[in-house]
Design a protein around this nucleic acid. Sequence first.
DNA 1: TATATTTGAGACAAGATAGTCTTAAATATG
DNA 2: CATATTTAAGACTATCTTGTCTCAAATATA
Lengths: 154, 154
Amino acid sequence: MLLSKSCIYGMRGALYLASSSNSKYISIKQISNDLDISPHFLTKIMQELTKAGLLESQKGPKGGVRLKKDGNEVALVEIVAAIDGMDLLTECALGLPGCGTAKPCPLHEQWADTRDEIRVMLEETTLTDLARKGKEGNLRITADGTFDWLPKDN
Amino acid sequence: MLLSKSCIYGMRGALYLASSSNSKYISIKQISNDLDISPHFLTKIMQELTKAGLLESQKGPKGGVRLKKDGNEVALVEIVAAIDGMDLLTECALGLPGCGTAKPCPLHEQWADTRDEIRVMLEETTLTDLARKGKEGNLRITADGTFDWLPKDN
DNA sequence: TATATTTGAGACAAGATAGTCTTAAATATG
DNA sequence: CATATTTAAGACTATCTTGTCTCAAATATA
Ligand code: SF4
Ligand code: SF4
């Protein structure tokens, strides 16, 4: 699996926030409900994103989470880094430790290229990109495809 | 992690075989010893490759495993398919089930491209490619870099 | 202030992956 | 044939990931 489930949930949660008007806090309960993700689990993951500085949160009624920066300034790689870490984008394809290409493995040439493709993709794709695309095509971010992308005006 | 540890060990084991003269069986014990992988664990993995038809085996003294086809006919993707399955190359980046691009997720465009890069890399790289490259550059396939790539004449 | 709501923190359980060990079956060799 | 070697099969344990639950702290609102 390329990304852990936690990371995928984090992405979907952040994407949800990026598709909303960012002025107000949204409760994780509502997000988990709309995205059909276990509330407790999503809470834990959103907490990680908050700790990482990607979200800000407020407790109590009318509380919730929201993006700290504007969605077009948040690349996917930041979410991956916060939850899965950068291992995928720095590690060896053969799992060998501590290579800086000094003593590479036979797969290095091919893997370094492929790894870069992944990295560039994650670096160049922002939450706003995905939210816009999602709204325009009414694309799914839930298993059953029931997700409304409201408000459309973001 | 892109590939499971089992898959990586399977690759390294198969690469070992491709770097040897393919006429005789090599014991898994020797392979695990040279590659510094747990013998029991590697045995289990090599069994999977044998069941998948990539290796053939013989029991008893002078027994062991060897490649069933010539190394230049074995692409990495076959090993991945045998051990991890094709999920990585067919599944959704957001973990959503059963998409055939009919109802895509917002990441689809980017991910489909990246996924293809990975697939092509795995399809176009053969064991012989890696063995040749490894011998020419004396590259490492063990954590500590102690691996000899003998015989050089393959 | 009292209450309900919501995040924060962390214990706990379930499931998947990784790794170990035991026993059986096959087979080369003396 | 007897024995040592090696794969085959699968039980078992350990570790990591995923998911659930409980309680505390903060806070909006009546
Ligand atoms: S060579 Fe590339 S893939 Fe191989 S160990 Fe070094 S970094 Fe990893
Ligand atoms: S769109 Fe592409 S990435 Fe998204 S669900 Fe369909 S296949 Fe998967």
